[in-house]
Computed example of a mutant assay.
Amino acid sequence: TEFDCATPSAAEAATRFERLLEREDVLAVIAGLPRGRGAGTDVGFAFLTLRPTPYWDGPLAQLEDLYVRPDLRAAGIGTGVLHRSVSEARRRGCEEILINVDSDDLGARRFYERHGFSDHDPDTGSGMRCYLRQL
């Protein structure tokens, strides 16, 4: 609801997550409050899918979603989740992580750029685009 777009109900989302997390080609990183009031409460997550690619032997990681509770943003939680996601993707043999970000989401774009992600091909410098077609 935060981004004014259609979302599944909490029950539907929980069912989907449970089903997806059973797969070998899915990776989730969960952030929780470590101590003090609310310790153990989940406050953010990253959800990645891993898929084969013809360009190298390991999978290609797609960061499907990275979310931190709005009241806890700018506290380093997203950075921690992203660093752990990158580390886990490397451990699984990934050589790249793809992220699709809406062009008008300047905060997300700045966040990923601050962490070394780019919307330009590292080999050619050419700008990259994401194309979508609903089916």
Results as ranks from 00 to 15, higher is better:
Leu63Lys: 06
Leu98Glu: 14
Leu106Asp: 10
Thr124Pro: 06
Arg109Val: 04
Asp4Arg: 08
Leu132Trp: 15
Ala89Met: 05
Arg51Gln: 13
Tyr131Met: 15
Leu72Tyr: 07
Tyr131Leu: 15
Thr1Pro: 11
Phe17Ser: 08
Gly76Ser: 08
Pro8Phe: 00
Gly36Ser: 02
Asp123Ser: 11
His120Asp: 02
Gly32Val: 09
Ile30Ser: 11
His115Lys: 07
Gly107Met: 01
Cys94Ser: 09
Glu2Met: 02
Glu64Leu: 11
Arg19Asp: 12
Ile99Arg: 10
Gly76Glu: 08
Gly76Met: 06
Arg110Ile: 03
Pro34Arg: 13
Ile30Gln: 05
Pro122Lys: 08
Gly32Met: 04
Leu20Gly: 03
Gln62Leu: 15
Gly76Phe: 05
Cys5His: 12
Thr7Cys: 10
Arg114Ile: 00
Asp71Gln: 12
Gly38Met: 01
Gly125Met: 04
Leu60Ala: 14
Ala10Pro: 00
Ala11Trp: 03
Gly58Asp: 02
Ala39Leu: 01
Ser85Phe: 00
Glu18Met: 04
Gly58Cys: 08
Leu20Met: 10
Ala89Asn: 05
Cys5Lys: 12
Asp4Pro: 03
Ile30Tyr: 04
Glu113Ser: 02
Pro52Lys: 06
Ile97His: 07
Ala39Asp: 05
Ser9Ile: 05
Tyr55Arg: 15
Phe111Ile: 04
Gly32Ala: 13
Thr41His: 08
Gly93Pro: 02
Leu21Arg: 08
Arg37Val: 04
Gly44Gln: 08
Leu106Gly: 12
Arg91Gln: 11
Pro122Leu: 07
Ala6Leu: 12
Pro59Ala: 10
Phe3Gln: 13
Glu2Gly: 07
Pro70Ile: 07
Leu60Glu: 12
Cys5Tyr: 13
Glu24Trp: 02
Phe111Tyr: 02
Leu98Thr: 10
Val68Phe: 12
Asn100Pro: 01
Arg73His: 10
Leu21Tyr: 07
Arg92His: 02
Asn100Met: 11
Leu135Cys: 04
Ala89Gln: 00
Asp57Arg: 11
Leu21Ser: 00
Pro54Val: 10
Ser103Glu: 13
Asp4Glu: 06
Gln62Pro: 07
Arg73Ala: 03
Cys130Phe: 15
Arg16Glu: 14
Arg91Glu: 15
Ala108Leu: 07
Arg90Tyr: 05
Cys5Ala: 11
Gly32His: 11
Phe47Ser: 10
Asp71Pro: 04
Thr15Lys: 15
Leu135Gln: 06
Phe117Trp: 10
Gly80Ser: 10
Cys5Arg: 15
Glu113Pro: 00
Asp105Pro: 02
Arg51Cys: 07
Asp65Trp: 07
Thr1Leu: 15
Pro8Glu: 00
Thr1Gly: 15
Gly32Gln: 12
Leu48Trp: 05
Leu132Asn: 12
Asp4Ser: 01
